[in-house]
Nucleic acid binder design. Structure first.
Length: 344
DNA sequence: ACCTTGTAGCACGTTACGTCA
DNA sequence: GTTGACGTAACGTGCTACAAG
């Protein structure tokens, strides 16, 4: 079995090994080596536990990550830790993805073409099997991490204390898939309290919260993002329910007014002509839900349901308040205010 | 002043894990 | 023990604002 490896045209070659093509903005013809990884994890994980892509991705995306920018050569698989002045904190996501994958390629290349790795009892064909979601087999990642462990340990002393402490919660993961930690009640309560004070965080607040709760800043950031999303979703549900009730109320009111209109029309045909008085009544348009003045005639008996329509008729009282469209009390016109109330 | 590029933060949708009935 | 629903941590993507060159 022969494996061709061409890093000169990375954007083309890398797509052969992943489910999803790796997006690469620039073709990079140099060798890159990670200078920091998970010290505690590497030490604690057993041979049976697989170290996943997630581990490598996180390790490569958490600043600072060290790179060796050396002329590409397959021999220089494990370059020595770079000097501190070659650290980069500007790694883009795609670049980190490329880093992840390059290690896999290196290990795969060696496993297939060079030699059987020490301590590995797997056949090389296994290395070509990709997991359905990650596009990188866990075997490859295990190989990669185990072999680079010694290199990582050389540079772990350079990892700053904050990062080391923030990663303390990572130790208990099994590493099979992406990790999901359940926050403790105390942590959730504290985050809730902070969210009540301000639903967004500036970097300083984020760092302070993370340090106080022994979480990674990214976790705090994600928590606030999800919390805002939950708030918005709940708000939407409340608004939806409220609008539903408004719709029901208006429908019922419209039905009542329509019935009243029918009664008035019936009375109009029955009452003597001299009893009819011109007036303007308020009717609710069923389609646009607006109150529109309609000049009609009614009897004195029903005059309490009309209002003065521009002086063309007598001023009539509004004694029967239950029959008036209550615009100010209509819930339809209160939705906005209600929404703001809930949001607060 | 204008443009380009990189970065950070966010909303939104989705995935996947943990919990519980 | 299994299963499905649900809550939610974590992630991917696109957009926008901003700063620096």
């Amino acid at each position: 079995m022969e494996l061709a490896l061409s890093l000169g045209d990375a954007s083309r070659s890398l797509t052969n090994f992943t489910d999803k093509p790796v997006k690469i903005k620039d073709n990079m013809g140099f060798c890159m080596g990670l200078g920091a990884l998970i010290k505690e994890k590497s030490q604690e994980k057993t041979q049976q536990q697989e170290i996943t892509r997630e581990d490598v991705r996180r390790a490569s995306s958490d600043p600072p990550v060290q790179l060796d920018l050396l002329p590409f050569s397959p021999v220089q698989r494990y370059p020595p830790p770079p000097p501190s002045h070659l650290r980069f904190s500007w790694l883009s996501e795609n670049f980190c993805r490329l880093l992840d994958f390059l290690w896999v390629i290196f290990d795969l290349f060696e496993a297939v073409n060079l030699c059987e790795p020490a301590g590995s009892n797997r056949v090389p064909e296994e290395a070509g099997v990709s997991s359905p979601n990650s596009g990188v087999s866990s075997f490859q990642m295990e190989l990669s991490l185990q072999r680079n462990k010694r290199d990582f340990e050389m540079t772990m002393n350079e990892v700053d204390g904050e990062r080391a402490s923030s990663r303390a919660s990572d130790d208990d993961e099994n590493g099979l898939t992406r990790k999901k930690l359940r926050l403790s009640k105390e942590q959730s309560a504290f985050l809730e309290e902070s969210f009540k004070e301000h639903n967004t965080l500036n970097p300083k607040q984020k760092l302070a919260l993370a340090k106080q709760l022994d979480l990674r800043p990214r976790q705090v950031e994600v928590w606030f993002q999800n919390r805002r999303a939950r708030t918005k979703l709940k708000q939407t549900e409340v608004d939806c329910e409220y609008l539903k009730r408004c719709c029901e109320t208006l429908t019922e009111e419209n039905r009542r007014l329509q019935k009243e209109l029918q009664e008035l029309r019936a009375l109009k045909t029955c009452q003597p002509f001299y009893m009819q008085l011109p007036a303007t009544t308020l009717t609710m348009c069923p389609s646009c839900e607006r109150v529109a003045p309609t000049t009609t005639t009614t009897t004195a008996a029903n005059a309490t349901t009309t209002v003065n329509g521009g002086g063309s008729g007598p001023n009539l009282s509004l004694s029967d308040s239950s029959k008036q469209p209550k615009l100010n009390n209509n819930p339809f016109f209160q939705v906005q205010g209600h929404a703001n109330q809930v949001a607060s």
